[in-house]
Design a binder for these strands. Structure first.
Length: 294
DNA sequence: ATCCAGGAAGGCG
DNA sequence: CGCCTTCATGGA
């Protein structure tokens, strides 16, 4: 077994992160077993199975395969991004301590990192899938899509799936997707986004170079199927922007309603008022509030 | 049965 | 601009 270690930052709880990674049994892109996060990454066109674990102050990444230094760098970067390890949460916890909504939730989940999806294409397709339906159903759809159009890899006696590439989703048969219970509209959105990634009209690199949150949001919502919610979701879960707030999010509404003991969902201005003290940390605030629901 | 889910587009006035 | 309907299904 070959291994690499990454030093952990302060305010990190492996258990809290694992719980989040293991929140749905239908998740097709990784497994969590006995405190180990298992994931297949394709590096240099070859699939490799990684076992990711942690002790008090270190993350350890292990694989049976002998990797080039360049590949190891990619894996380490992928893990750092996925677990948002470069983020210093001191300010967030200071702010949350005195916040009536965040306070109790943050104390309960302290050390949880915002689990990111490093790939923008995967993030956007996951958003399209999840629009307007409950999470359980969304995971069913994702599982079917990944098993049908994603990569299959037999490693260590198990089948591992990787997310479909744009070319696998750019020419879909609507009838096939209908059997998989996708709405016709979602098939159109997915296919059009895949085509734009394939042609290069839309790319992760282009958005990362923009650097200005407003410009990024503006670019994203030009794409059919991407509205305010999806743009903000992608900014927080993929691009790592700290201040994305999906104001219309049903989960956010539910969490605020619960925390403030309202008998109805909050109005947009109530959401903004609640979020005012979170300035600069809206992404983490939203992510922690989602935890309060499960 | 009815309503809402980690929404968005398109039509209307 | 704001409001209304449609899309598909499942769980409460």
């Amino acid at each position: 077994m070959h291994t690499r270690k990454i030093q952990l930052p302060a305010d990190f709880s492996w258990q809290a992160c694992l719980k989040q990674l293991d929140r749905n049994a239908l998740e097709p892109l990784h497994r969590v077993s006995e405190g180990i996060w298992q994931k297949v990454l394709v590096l240099d066109e070859h699939p490799h199975l990684f076992y990711i674990g942690a002790d008090e102050d270190t993350i350890e990444i292990a694989t049976e395969d002998d990797l080039k230094d360049q590949s190891w760098r990619e894996v380490e970067q992928w893990v750092k991004t996925s677990l948002d390890l470069d983020r210093n949460l001191t300010e967030f916890y200071q702010m949350a301590e005195s916040d009536p909504i965040l306070g109790p939730i943050v104390r309960q989940h302290r050390g949880l990192r915002l689990i990111r999806i490093p790939d923008l294409f995967e993030t956007l397709i996951w958003c399209i899938i999840g629009q307007q339906i409950n999470l359980a159903f969304a995971y069913q759809l994702k599982s079917r899509l990944v098993r049908t159009f994603g990569g299959h890899h037999l490693l260590a006696g198990q089948t591992w799936y990787t997310f479909p590439k744009p070319e696998a989703l750019s020419d879909l048969d609507p009838a096939e997707l209908k059997i998989m219970q996708f709405s016709r509209r979602k098939v159109e959105y997915i296919q059009e986004i895949a085509q734009q990634f394939l042609s290069g009209d839309l790319s992760q690199q282009e958005l990362e170079q923009l650097n200005d949150p407003l410009a990024i949001r503006e670019r994203l919502v030009k794409v059919r199927g991407i509205g305010d919610w999806t743009a903000n979701y992608a900014m927080m879960r993929c691009l790592g922007l700290p201040n994305a707030l999906p104001v219309g999010d049903a989960g956010l509404h539910q969490a605020i309603r619960k925390a403030l003991d309202l008998d109805r969902k909050p109005t947009p201005s109530e959401v903004r008022a609640a979020a005012d003290p979170w300035k600069g940390w809206e992404s983490y605030a939203t992510y922690y509030l989602w935890q309060s629901l499960s």
